[in-house]
Measured scan of single mutants.
Amino acid sequence: NQASVVANQLIPINTALTLVMMRSEVVTPVGIPAKDIPRLVSMQVNRAVPLGTTLMPDMVKGYA
């Protein structure tokens, strides 16, 4: 199973992502692939993302 990107903490709306905010985990449904973590750094979330939430492409500005 492919690992997805999961929030390692509460990420407030419009926050630029950093490595410490994200972890990889095998979850259902599948979200953004963990291999894309380096690409996500500095991108902003367009909503508040609670701890443990799988990041989906529509949550990150400029990803999709």
Rank of each mutant, 00 (worst) to 15 (best):
I37H: 03
V5H: 00
P50E: 07
I32K: 00
P33V: 10
G52Q: 04
S4E: 01
G62I: 05
V27Q: 08
D36H: 08
R23V: 05
I13C: 11
L40N: 00
L19F: 07
S4Q: 02
P50R: 12
A7K: 00
K35L: 14
V41I: 10
Y63S: 03
Q44G: 05
V49D: 02
V5Y: 02
S4P: 01
M43I: 03
T54H: 02
Q2K: 04
P33G: 06
P38H: 06
N1A: 15
I32Y: 02
V6I: 11
M22F: 11
L17C: 02
R23A: 09
D58R: 05
V60G: 01
P50F: 14
T53P: 01
D58N: 11
V20W: 10
L19C: 11
T15M: 08
N14I: 03
A34R: 04
A3M: 13
S4D: 01
I13Q: 08
A64N: 13
M56E: 08
A16Q: 08
V5R: 02
T54P: 07
R23T: 04
P29M: 07
V41E: 07
M22T: 02
T54E: 01
K35A: 15
P12K: 08
S42R: 09
P12I: 05
V6K: 03
V60T: 01
T53C: 14
P38E: 12
V27I: 10
V27L: 07
S4T: 04
A48R: 11
M22W: 02
M43Q: 05
A16G: 09
Q44D: 04
V20N: 11
L55C: 02
M21K: 03
V27P: 02
T28F: 08
P12S: 05
R23S: 04
I11M: 06
T28H: 06
Q44C: 10
A64T: 15
V45P: 03
A48D: 07
M59K: 02
R39W: 10
M59D: 13
A3Q: 10
L10P: 09
I13E: 14
P50G: 09
A48Y: 08
P50N: 12
M22V: 06
I11Y: 02
T18E: 04
M21Q: 04
G62Q: 09
V41F: 09
I32F: 03
I32L: 06
V45I: 09
I11E: 00
I37F: 03
R39T: 10
M21H: 06
Q9E: 13
A34L: 03
V45R: 00
G31S: 02
M21T: 03
I37Q: 10
L51P: 14
D58W: 12
T54V: 10
P38L: 07
L17D: 00
V49E: 01
N1K: 05
P57N: 14
E25Q: 11
R23P: 01
L19D: 04
L40H: 00
I37Y: 03
V5D: 01
R39I: 08
E25Y: 10
I37M: 11
V6S: 03
A64R: 08
T15C: 05
N14F: 10
L55T: 00
V6G: 00
A34S: 10
Q2A: 10
Q9V: 11
I37S: 04
T53K: 07
M59Y: 10
K61F: 10
M22I: 09
V20I: 08
L19R: 07
A34N: 07
D58Y: 12
P38C: 10
V6T: 07
A64W: 05
G31N: 01
A16Y: 08
V45W: 00
V26M: 12
G31H: 01
V30Q: 12
S24L: 07
V20S: 13
A48H: 10
I32V: 07
L55W: 01
N8R: 13
L10N: 08
L51S: 12
G62Y: 13
L19V: 06
V60N: 01
L40I: 13
L19T: 04
A34G: 12
A7R: 01
I11H: 01
N1F: 09
M56I: 07
M56A: 06
T15S: 07
I13D: 11
T53R: 10
R47C: 05
P57K: 08
A7W: 02
S24G: 10
P12E: 14
N46Q: 12
I37A: 07
P38K: 05
N1H: 14
M56V: 11
P29K: 06
T54W: 02
L19Q: 05
V30M: 11
S42A: 14
L55F: 11
R47L: 09
M56K: 07
M21Y: 05
T28Y: 13
N1C: 15
T18D: 03
A64E: 12
Y63P: 03
M59F: 13
Q44A: 10
V49T: 06
Q2T: 13
I32D: 00
P29N: 08
A34V: 13
I37T: 09
S42M: 08
Q9Y: 14
A3G: 07
V26P: 09
P57D: 08
E25P: 01
V30G: 10
K61Y: 09
P33N: 13
P12N: 10
P12V: 06
N46V: 08
K35Y: 15
P33L: 13
N1I: 15
Q44T: 11
M22H: 00
A64L: 15
E25R: 05
T15L: 06
K61M: 09
Y63F: 11
G31R: 00
S24T: 09
N46F: 14
A7N: 01
M21C: 03
L51F: 11
T15G: 05
L10F: 12
V41R: 04
S24P: 08
G62C: 14
R47Y: 12
R23F: 03
M56R: 07
V6E: 02
G31T: 01
V27G: 03
S24Y: 09
V45S: 12
L51C: 13
Q9M: 14
Q9L: 10
S4N: 00
N8D: 13
T18F: 05
V49H: 01
A3Y: 12
N14T: 05
N14A: 06
M56T: 07
S42K: 10
R47N: 07
Q2L: 14
T15R: 06
Y63I: 03
M43G: 04
V30Y: 15
T53W: 15
K35E: 15
P57I: 10
V26F: 09
V45E: 00
V26L: 12
A64D: 09
G31A: 03
T28N: 13
T28A: 06
A7P: 01
S24R: 07
M43E: 04
I11W: 02
M56P: 01
A64F: 05
T18G: 04
P38I: 09
A16C: 15
M21F: 06
D36A: 05
N14H: 10
K61S: 12
A3N: 13
I11K: 01
A16F: 11
N46L: 15
P29A: 05
Y63K: 03
